[in-house]
């Protein structure tokens, strides 16, 4: 539900960077979105067109690299993919998060 607000933050950062580089048009915005970032990619894509309209990113492409939710076992050190739980698929012990909470703007392509 907060994807529109997230997308506006993305556009703010993108425009700020584009200005620093004296660009007049943003052609592409590339993001890194973790599976556990709390953001729905479909909703982000939906928000993108609306939020960028009449800005220097109007008509730009949105590229999203999704990052899997992964953990590392606190007892055996094994790294594993998580579905629901942060549990080691080798020894069954608890793990700590090593990826999946990313919400980053990676790069922009400008003219």
């Amino acid at each position: 539900m907060h994807e529109v607000s997230i997308m506006m933050s993305i556009l703010d950062l993108a425009i700020e960077e584009a200005r620093k580089h004296n660009a007049k048009k943003i052609q592409r915005i590339t993001l890194e979105v973790g599976a556990k970032s709390g953001v729905v990619i479909d909703a982000l894509e939906f928000a993108f067109e609306t939020v960028t309209r009449n800005s220097i990113a109007d008509g730009a492409q949105l590229t999203i690299h999704s990052i899997p939710y992964r953990g590392e076992c606190i007892s055996c050190g094994h790294q594993f993919d998580c579905a629901e739980f942060l549990l080691c698929d080798k020894c069954g012990n608890f793990g700590k998060i090593i990826s999946g909470q990313e919400l980053r703007i990676e790069s922009i392509e400008v003219d």
Binding site: D12, L13, H21, K24, S55, I56, S107, I108
Partner: peptide, 27 residues
């Protein structure tokens, strides 16, 4: 938010990629 009208800049040099690597919620 300053939409549109960015003006022309002398160093305009066509499509290029700018690496940002910032947290979206950094502000």
């Amino acid at each position: 938010h300053d939409h549109g009208d960015q003006g022309h800049h002398a160093d305009h040099d066509g499509g290029r990629e700018i690496s940002i690597q910032r947290d979206i919620l950094s502000k």
